[in-house]
C-alpha cells in the first residue's frame, strides 16, 4: 500500500520465539522476530529454507502459538490464546493459501469455496469469489478435473471468500510453472487491491518481492531487514 495517510497497524509481533521438539532435540525455529503489518498492505517474506518464515506465518495465522514474546491482532492477544479462540480467529479473520492447494477432492470448485462461506460471518457469494480468480466457468469441476494453476486459484477464491482481514500465502507459486505462477500472483494482487485484505506472501523467489509494498527478509529466525518499494510492480513485469 502506498498512501499518504498514516498507516494503521493491525498486527504487532514482538520478540517472538518458537521452539519445536524434533525427536529428542529442541529446534529453535524463531529467535525473537519483530513485525508490524498495516491495514491493506501487501508484504513479501523472503528468506532461505529454515530462516523461520513459515513458522512466523503460522503464528500470524493462528495455526500455532509462540513459545515466548507477544502477538496481537488489533485488540486480540494471540500469544496465549486457546485452541477455541484461535479457531475463531481463523474462522473470522484469516485466509490461507498453501503451496499444495489442499482442496477437498470430493467437493467441486464452488463447493470448496462454499465450505468457507457457510461458516464466515460476512462472506462473498462463492460465485463472486470464483469470478475474482476468473474461474466461474469451472465452478462445477472437481479438483481432479482442474490443472494445478486452476486448483491454486480455487484455493485463493476459497481463502478470500470470507473477506479476510489477513490473507496468508505460503509459497503459493511454488508448485507452478512461470506462466501459471504469474497468473496466480496477478489474482493475489487484485484481491489485495479490491478487497483490501492485508496480505503476507512467503516465497523463495526474490523477483516476487517487487510486487510488495514492503519486503521482510528473514535470516536465522529473525527479521533481518525491512524495505519499502516506492511502487508495486505488475505481475506481468516480473521475470524469473
Amino acid at each position: 500500500m502506498s498512501s499518504d495517510t498514516s498507516p494503521v497497524s493491525v498486527l504487532q509481533a514482538r520478540r517472538l520465539t518458537r521452539t519445536y521438539r524434533m525427536g529428542e532435540v529442541d529446534v529453535l525455529a524463531l529467535r525473537g522476530a519483530d513485525m508490524d503489518l498495516y491495514e491493506g498492505e501487501l508484504v513479501v517474506l523472503l528468506g532461505p529454507s529454515g530462516s523461520g518464515k513459515s513458522t512466523l506465518l503460522n503464528l500470524l495465522g493462528g495455526l500455532d502459538v509462540p513459545t515466548s514474546g507477544s502477538l496481537k491482532w488489533r485488540d486480540h492477544d494471540l500469544t496465549s490464546a486457546t485452541d477455541a479462540a484461535l479457531t475463531r480467529y481463523r474462522r473470522e479473520h484469516v485466509g490461507f493459501v498453501f503451496q499444495f492447494y489442499n482442496l477437498v477432492p470430493s467437493l467441486t470448485a464452488r463447493e470448496n469455496v462454499a465450505l468457507v462461506t457457510d461458516i464466515a460471518p460476512d462472506p462473498l457469494d462463492p460465485d463472486e469469489a470464483l469470478d475474482l480468480v476468473g474461474l466461474r466457468s469451472r465452478r462445477d469441476h472437481f479438483p481432479s478435473q482442474l490443472s494445478g494453476g486452476e486448483q491454486q486459484r480455487v484455493a485463493i477464491a476459497r481463502a478470500v471468500a470470507k473477506r479476510p482481514d489477513l490473507l496468508l500465502c505460503d509459497e503459493p507459486t511454488g508448485a507452478l510453472d512461470v506462466a501459471t505462477g504469474r497468473l496466480v500472483l496477478d489474482v493475489l494482487a487484485r484481491v489485495n487491491r479490491e478487497l483490501g485484505a492485508t496480505t503476507a506472501l512467503i516465497t523463495h523467489n526474490a523477483a516476487i518481492a517487487a510486487l510488495a509494498d514492503r519486503v521482510f527478509t528473514m535470516a536465522d529466525g529473525r527479521v533481518a531487514t525491512v524495505t519499502s518499494n516506492a511502487t508495486r510492480a505488475k505481475s506481468s513485469d516480473i521475470q524469473w
Binding site: 495465522g61 495455526l63 485452541d83 477455541a84 479457531t87 475463531r88 481463523r90 474462522r91 473470522e92 484469516v94 490461507f96 498453501f98 489442499n102 482442496l103 477437498v104 477432492p105 470430493s106 465450505l115 468457507v116 461458516i119 464466515a120 476459497r158 470470507k162
Partner: peptide, 14 residues
C-alpha cells in the same frame, strides 16, 4: 488428514 487439516485451518472446529 490433509483435507481435515485444511478444514481446521479454514476455521472449522475440532
Amino acid at each position: 488428514a490433509r483435507e481435515l487439516a485444511s478444514l481446521r485451518v479454514l476455521g472449522f472446529t475440532r
